[in-house]
Lab assay of single mutants.
Amino acid sequence: MSIQHFRVALIPFFAAFCLPVFAHPETLVKVKDAEDQLGARVGYIELDLNSGKILESFRPEERFPMMSTFKVLLCGAVLSRVDAGQEQLGRRIHYSQNDLVEYSPVTEKHLTDGMTVRELCSAAITMSDNTAANLLLTTIGGPKELTAFLHNMGDHVTRLDRWEPELNEAIPNDERDTTMPAAMATTLRKLLTGELLTLASRQQLIDWMEADKVAGPLLRSALPAGWFIADKSGAGERGSRGIIAALGPDGKPSRIVVIYTTGSQATMDERNRQIAEIGASLIKHW
């Protein structure tokens, strides 16, 4: 067993022997301040990774656009098919120029040779490549099948209805392509620590998230040296922004954090800054 596999296998073990965790309302004060600064709703939840206990939450059962955070769930569904012998990570998928959609920095470079399922998941999570996500959605049967996968996990809230990039439209009061912070946090925890996926697939999923290259201005910008984070960000229309993450000190994750916002007129930089400040408060009061 590799060191990384050992780390993920012992996530519940280490967490069980940690000192009790206590909620700190100071972080919620910052979440509410972010709402004021952005002029928009902000949803927040913080779960203990081992027990699933909610440590703090704000608007945990209000719907927010998922945006690209759905790509972690998508690759979880792909990995479940791999575990069941219905898919192979090494299978190569070929596609054409007509398949390319807006923001496809990886797939646009491989029109000639195609990409493997493993490479597509890596591109979808680490670079948020939209064509990679659409190609992977095709392998599982489309958005409705991802929703069905989530329902089978016990998540009857999260739903995907459309493809990239239309799913980022974020129309107010439109339930399409949305989740709730509580539902997303619980589902992410199941994917990373539950028995739904094999140990190898859980490790692969967290490795992809740990290698995320496009979430630097968010929670990662607030992390002290030595902290662990595996995350996936999302951005959408109407001032929408979000991030889902597993993080913790001492090089291992111990909490799940989900943050979503929508309806702001603020710039992307300002949305990023507010999420980073929430992260800084979380870490300060850990």
Rank of each mutant, 00 (worst) to 15 (best):
A133T: 06
R220F: 03
D99S: 11
I93L: 05
D174K: 02
G226I: 01
T262N: 12
P60S: 09
V117Y: 01
I140M: 12
Q274A: 07
D231F: 04
N50I: 07
K53W: 05
T126R: 02
L135P: 04
M153W: 05
D113C: 00
A182W: 11
E108K: 14
T69Q: 13
L135C: 12
N272M: 00
L120Q: 00
G114P: 02
T69N: 05
G43I: 00
T187R: 01
M184H: 12
A148E: 14
R241G: 09
P60V: 09
S128Y: 01
S281G: 10
K190D: 14
M268Y: 05
R162C: 12
A225T: 11
K144R: 08
Q86F: 15
I259D: 01
G141V: 08
N130L: 12
L74W: 03
D99V: 14
T138N: 07
D33P: 08
G39F: 08
I259P: 06
S68T: 02
G39A: 10
P165A: 03
I244R: 03
L111C: 02
L205A: 02
G43N: 00
A211F: 04
Q203I: 04
E119K: 03
F149W: 12
V117R: 01
D207C: 11
S233C: 12
R59S: 08
V29P: 04
A276Y: 06
E35F: 04
T116F: 02
G85Y: 10
K284V: 12
T27F: 02
I45F: 00
R41P: 06
M209A: 05
W163N: 11
N98I: 06
R63P: 09
S254D: 05
Q274E: 06
P65Q: 05
V106W: 00
L247S: 12
H156S: 10
L191T: 07
A124I: 11
A183R: 04
R159D: 00
E164N: 00
Q37Y: 13
M153P: 11
H24N: 14
L205Y: 01
D161L: 09
R189F: 12
T267Q: 07
L38P: 01
I171E: 02
I244D: 04
M115Q: 13
A123P: 15
D99K: 04
L150W: 15
A235T: 04
V78L: 12
M67K: 12
L135T: 12
A215P: 04
N152W: 13
V82R: 14
I243T: 09
V31A: 07
D155V: 03
R91Y: 14
I171R: 05
L192M: 08
A266N: 14
R220H: 05
G142H: 06
G114D: 13
Y103M: 13
S264R: 07
K190I: 03
G248Y: 04
G43T: 02
Q88S: 08
R118T: 01
E169Y: 07
R59H: 04
T107R: 13
E277I: 11
D113R: 00
G194K: 03
T69S: 07
I45A: 00
E195S: 07
I125G: 01
K252F: 02
G52H: 13
P165F: 09
G216V: 09
L89D: 01
L282H: 05
S128P: 03
C75T: 12
D113W: 00
G142E: 02
V72F: 14
G226P: 07
R176Y: 09
I229Q: 03
T267C: 10
P253N: 10
R202F: 03
G236C: 02
W163E: 12
G226K: 00
A185N: 05
Q37E: 05
S281R: 08
P165Y: 06
L137E: 06
I244T: 09
K213E: 14
P105Q: 15
S201W: 04
W227R: 08
S221T: 11
E119D: 01
A170K: 11
R241Q: 07
I171T: 06
E108G: 01
D212K: 14
G251R: 10
D212N: 09
I54Q: 06
K32G: 04
T193L: 07
E166D: 13
H151T: 11
A246T: 06
K30E: 10
I140L: 13
W208H: 15
C121K: 13
D83R: 05
V31E: 14
T267W: 09
N272V: 00
V257M: 10
N152R: 08
A182Y: 07
A276S: 13
A225P: 10
A225Y: 15
R273W: 07
K213N: 14
T186Q: 11
Y95P: 02
A123W: 15
Y103D: 05
G76W: 10
I278C: 14
G39P: 06
V29M: 03
R59K: 05
P253I: 01
F149C: 10
I171N: 00
M209Q: 05
Y103N: 09
L188E: 10
L135K: 06
A34Q: 06
W286P: 04
T178G: 12
W227D: 14
L223M: 05
L79M: 00
S57F: 13
Q265H: 09
P181H: 11
P249R: 12
E237C: 10
A280P: 06
L73W: 05
G141D: 15
H24W: 04
L49G: 07
T193P: 07
E61R: 05
G43E: 01
A215Q: 02
R238F: 01
L120H: 00
N134I: 06
E237I: 11
F228E: 01
E61Q: 06
K144F: 14
G226M: 01
R92C: 04
G236K: 06
P143W: 10
R220V: 05
G279Y: 07
R176I: 03
I283L: 09
W286N: 01
P217T: 12
F58Y: 00
D207W: 08
R176D: 08
M67N: 14
A124K: 02
E56I: 09
G263H: 13
L192D: 10
G279V: 03
D113Y: 00
C75K: 15
V29C: 13
I229P: 01
A276G: 09
L205S: 05
L79E: 15
S240K: 08
Y95Q: 01
L111A: 04
L150C: 12
L205R: 08
S96H: 01
E35T: 10
K30W: 15
A77P: 01
I278M: 01
D250C: 04
G194Q: 08
K30N: 15
R92F: 01
L120E: 15
L247V: 10
E169M: 09
A246C: 11
E270H: 14
D99R: 07
D33F: 05
A280S: 11
Q204A: 04
D36S: 03
E195D: 07
L55G: 11
G236W: 06
R81P: 13
D269V: 08
P224A: 06
T27L: 05
G226L: 11
D113N: 00
L111M: 00
I256W: 10
G114L: 04
L223G: 11
P65V: 03
I243R: 02
H24L: 09
F228M: 01
I283H: 07
L146A: 14
T112K: 07
A211K: 02
W286A: 06
Q37C: 15
I256K: 05
Q97M: 13
R81T: 08
T147M: 04
G114T: 08
A84Q: 04
N130Q: 14
L188Y: 15
Q265G: 09
P224N: 15
Q97Y: 06
I206H: 12
V31T: 06
V214A: 12
A40Q: 02
K144P: 10
K213R: 08
K284W: 07
Y260R: 01
G52Q: 13
W208P: 09
R176S: 04
V72S: 03
A34W: 13
Q274N: 11
V257K: 06
R238W: 12
R92W: 02
E61M: 04
G154T: 07
I54E: 14
V29Q: 02
L136M: 10
V72T: 10
K32Y: 08
L120R: 01
L205H: 07
W227G: 06
I283F: 10
V72D: 03
G194W: 10
D33C: 02
P217F: 03
K71L: 00
K252T: 08
S80M: 10
E237Q: 05
L120Y: 14
D36Q: 03
Q86R: 08
M209S: 06
T138R: 04
G251E: 12
A182I: 02
L28E: 10
E270A: 14
Y95D: 05
T178F: 15
A183G: 07
L247M: 09
A235K: 02
K32F: 09
S264A: 04
T179A: 09
S51W: 01
R118D: 15
D129E: 00
G142K: 02
G76D: 01
D250H: 11
A230D: 08
L74S: 13
W286Q: 03
I259V: 09
L192A: 09
Q203A: 07
V31N: 10
E35A: 11
D177Q: 12
Q265M: 06
D83M: 02
P60G: 07
L100V: 10
R220S: 05
E175M: 13
Q86L: 01
N130S: 06
Q97N: 06
T116C: 02
Q203D: 07
G39L: 12
G234C: 06
E166H: 10
